[in-house]
């Protein structure tokens, strides 16, 4: 990852800065459209997640300023979700909606809750690999492994563990794996 030292502390500083710079405009827009503070907060936080995933981690080029991107994404999300206060989404759904795949089946939520407690160390390490996309070297240091090789082995062990938990659950919920 370039130009952004991805640690919890740096993320906190960055989100605080983005919040202070970009949230007032989003709040003003949502209020003008007749929406609430909670709606503004909801869409802004999802815009921050989209920004983190696309721009900071995956280095997707945006033809916009940081604040412009956040405002545009939040505005589109608000229009999609709240304009008519109906559940119907427009056909041309906006690509930055990060909530699409979060309404998982109850069995998946149970599984996630289980993994978040029983397998937290593994989940945190897999998060660093797959979501935050840290270098294996950074991960080895952060998680206390002797080197790149043992961090890599540990990553696959963790993935195997999560996979086996998924498999076990799928025996209980027949529809778990499509």
């Amino acid at each position: 990852m370039a130009a952004f030292n991805n640690t919890a502390q740096k993320r906190e500083q960055l989100f605080s800065k983005l919040y202070q710079n970009a949230f007032p405009a989003v709040a003003a827009y949502v209020s003008k459209m007749g929406g609430s503070f909670d709606e503004a907060k909801d869409v802004f936080q999802d815009a921050l997640i989209a920004y983190y995933e696309k721009v900071l981690v995956n280095n997707t080029a945006i033809h916009n300023t940081e604040n412009g991107y956040l405002f545009g994404t939040a505005r589109n999300l608000w229009l999609q979700r709240y304009r008519n206060k109906s559940k119907q989404l427009p056909l041309d759904g906006y690509g930055d909606d990060v909530t699409d795949d979060e309404e998982a089946a109850p069995s998946a939520n149970k599984l996630l809750a289980y993994l978040a407690t029983a397998g937290k160390k593994c989940m945190d390490m897999l998060k660093a690999f797959y979501y935050d996309k840290l270098d294996t070297e950074e991960i080895a240091t952060a998680f206390g492994y002797s080197g790149v090789r043992s961090a890599t082995v540990q990553k696959y062990k963790c993935l195997e563990k999560v996979r086996n938990t998924v498999k076990q659950q799928s025996l209980q919920y027949a529809d778990f794996i499509e």
């Binding site: 997640i49 996630l112 993994l115 998060k127 979501y131 938990t165």
Partner: peptide, 27 residues
């Protein structure tokens, strides 16, 4: 392989929830 794909999806879901918690703390 299917279970592995599902596992990686769960990691993504878990990660977003963690990030959302961090953002909420800032809020």
């Amino acid at each position: 392989v299917k279970a592995q794909r599902h596992a990686v999806e769960l990691v993504k879901q878990y990660s977003r929830e963690q990030l959302r918690t961090e953002i909420e703390a800032v809020h």
